[in-house]
Design a protein around this nucleic acid. Structure first.
Lengths: 247, 247
DNA sequence: CGTTGGGTTGATCGACCTCAATAAAAGTGG
DNA sequence: CCACTTTTATTGAGGTCGATCAACCCAACG
């Protein structure tokens, strides 16, 4: 399952020998889609000085729930799952992070959730303190961060609707449509939706068991609404899935 | 059910004849708990100049989902329910607003949800545009607003856990504990938790039907864990409810 | 009063979970 | 490169929690 999925993701930056030069951010393919899109060239150079590029292998933990959040992250390639654990082991995935997403935008002292890489992942990381200080000198960056938090809040509320008021089939459809939209921002809208996460992850995101996720995907595939491919699905009947997702 | 519930709420400000004088905010009993807690006396006077005090009767709509958000609101007394509707009429309550809560903190162009008053409600309302302009001159106020958004995001994620991974009984327990904590910030921690919303509202918040909400409350009452009183519940066995809520 | 909008309780049903088996895929070590 | 193990995905049979349907209670109110 972890084999060729990186083929779908935005490939990591070509490693340039003189990295951290002032050209570093300029080559970043998610810049315009991320927080950094709010910065001018000279500001970008200042921010880049604070950045600590990092890499995680698939399955590695990036940070854990309730830990002190000494860093914040701007994902440049790869994807991650964000989740909370209950004392008895039940797990709720609160979201999936894609390239361009910012982890830690609440700037709280402790992490609200755990995060681990689903694929090899690269990010620009910053000390939370120094990032916060940088924000004080760039009010428009704070505005952008706040706008991103507002967007997250809206997604979280949409997820509440999905969790509280939708059937298993509708949940799967809404999940696929939501993910499709997010991938579309990143790549030239492909009909194939990459699914770097396991069925268990999807279930823990939607409040379903693995078996139900599998059954619903199989049902949609039988109806020729989707085609299940390695590490993803292809939407054959977008209108049908959208109808289910909105209903 | 709609009778004496205001007895629990923070009573409205005594109407002072020369309202909007510079003493207006100074008498506000939620000031230190709300956004305004981040402001100095002189800044408070400036903000107060922008404020338009407003009043809603119980059941009245404050604003509706997808409408242009021309105003933002700082609730000074009373409570409201915040919800999204699905095309087919299903409803998901995304939260309940209490005194000190800020509506519209994402500053988005359109409302992400509908809001209506559960009790008579008073608030300081601001034109979104002028509030946004005011923010530009007060970076520390934006920081506070952002911190509040981060807190909202955390609550939303906690709600995802509740909706996705908890049983009906646990949902009710978690709801009561969460609400207790919020009321405790406002008043001297009373053992009685005011419930200005209907069972239907609670159900639509927790992803349950009215009947199940009623049954679970009755069950907890039979076990002597709670006592159901008009417009609220009294926690008789806090440890029991907390254990259920965290489990 | 009669009406209306909550709230509670009971009987039944079904969507999704649980348990179990199998299949397919992805490492792992020789 | 091939056995072997481990992880992930699928499929089936049966059980259960919460939904649905329905009756009834009660307080508020014109």
């Amino acid at each position: 399952m972890a084999g060729s999925q990186e083929a779908f993701s935005v490939p990591p930056l070509a490693l340039c020998p003189n990295a951290k030069a002032e050209t570093h951010c300029e080559q970043c393919r998610v810049r315009s889609l991320s927080l950094c899109g709010a910065l001018e060239a000279d500001e970008l150079i200042d921010l880049d000085r604070l950045s600590r590029p990092m890499h995680h292998a698939a399955r590695e933990t990036i940070f854990e729930q309730d830990e002190l959040a000494d860093s914040v992250f701007n994902i440049t390639s790869g994807s991650a799952r964000l989740y909370r654990l209950l004392p008895d082991g039940r797990r709720q995935v609160v979201g999936f992070a894609l390239p361009g997403d910012f982890l830690g935008l609440a700037l709280t002292e402790r992490n609200a959730f755990s995060a681990d890489a689903l694929t090899p992942l690269t990010a620009c990381s910053f000390s939370r303190q120094s990032f916060s200080d940088f924000l004080d000198s760039k009010p428009h960056l704070l505005r952008k961060l706040h706008a991103m938090a507002g967007h997250e809040l809206s997604l979280a509320q949409e997820q509440m609707v999905i969790l509280g008021r939708r059937t298993a089939e509708e949940k799967i459809a809404a999940f696929l449509i939501g993910l499709r939209k997010r991938w579309a921002r990143l790549s030239t809208s492909s009909v194939t939706i990459p699914l770097p996460m396991t069925r268990q992850d999807i279930g823990d995101f939607l409040g379903l068991t693995v078996e139900t996720v599998s059954r619903m995907l199989t049902r949609l595939a039988r109806e020729k609404a989707i085609l299940i491919v390695p590490d993803g699905v292809r939407l054959l009947n977008v209108a049908r899935i959208e109808a289910l997702a909105e209903s």
